[in-house]
Amino acid sequence: MAANQRIVFIGDSITQAGRFEDSEQIGYGYVRYIKDYFAINQPEELPFIVNKGINGNRIPDLEKRWEVDVLSLQPDLVSISIGINDVWRQLDRLELEQVTPAIFKGIYDRLLAQVKMHTEASIFLMEPTIIEESIEAKGNILLKDYVAVIHELAEKYGATIVPTHQVFTEYLQKENHQVLTTDGVHMNTAGNMLMAQTWLKTYKKCKVGK
């Protein structure tokens, strides 16, 4: 990995995870776990990590800040985690204008096209994790179409999938599985560990920056 590689993580509250209360602006979620992994295992090649998660964001919110929070930073790798709120708002905020899979795809497509056009960044697309810790929950059923969109766009743009939805749903089917969230969506320490582990396995498999 190239020294001082710049990695930008962008997404919603799962990515934000207290970054505004953290002096390093990294937060206390999966991004922190990833940063600490690099700090312990390869301090001589420590990447510069930027957390741009914002609580409550859906894909239209990312589009509004894409230039400032991604393109202007000229990342070597951009990791995107979005989709949970696009589905969750269909369950708890019915009065809002909803983000259908078609709208989600159209906006996400534009964002990825801009990354390809204006940067040299590798792209990691993180699958949205879970909505409730049951694979049969309505939120998880609705998420399937959004996960499919992400896979389609990854193929189109040569992006790398971080299979967080797959890993979470597989984990929930194991005997004696542990609780992963505080409220069905936001991660506890175990959930953040699982997200970070999945991301790092993907990263090492791709050998990004080598």
Rank of each mutant, 00 (worst) to 15 (best):
I49C: 08
L77M: 11
N192H: 11
I80A: 03
P47C: 07
G191W: 02
E132L: 06
M1S: 15
C206I: 15
L96W: 08
L180H: 03
E152T: 13
V208N: 01
I14P: 00
S23L: 00
A2D: 08
R32A: 11
E133H: 00
I82N: 03
K64P: 10
V68F: 01
G106C: 03
V87F: 05
V70C: 01
L200V: 10
T169M: 08
N51C: 04
Y28C: 04
I49P: 10
Y37A: 09
R19N: 15
G11W: 09
D12C: 11
T169P: 03
I123A: 11
E24A: 06
V78K: 09
V149G: 13
H118F: 14
Y203A: 05
E152Q: 11
I135G: 00
H165W: 10
K105V: 15
T160M: 04
A39M: 10
Q197A: 13
E132G: 02
L46C: 14
V115I: 15
Q5G: 09
E175Y: 04
V167S: 02
D61F: 00
T119N: 06
N140H: 09
A154E: 03
K201T: 03
K116T: 14
R32V: 09
E21L: 07
I7T: 11
G191D: 03
I161T: 05
G29E: 07
M187L: 05
F48S: 00
D86I: 12
L77I: 15
A2S: 08
V149P: 11
A3E: 01
Y146S: 01
E127Q: 12
A159V: 15
G209V: 00
E63W: 04
Q98T: 01
A154W: 05
K138G: 02
V149R: 13
Q114D: 10
L77Q: 10
I141G: 03
S122F: 08
R19S: 15
Y146V: 01
A102P: 01
H165A: 12
G184T: 12
D61K: 00
E44W: 14
E97A: 01
H165D: 10
V208M: 02
V162H: 09
T15P: 13
P47K: 06
N192Q: 04
G18V: 14
P101F: 09
Q114G: 07
V167T: 12
Q25Y: 09
A39Q: 14
Y108K: 12
E133F: 00
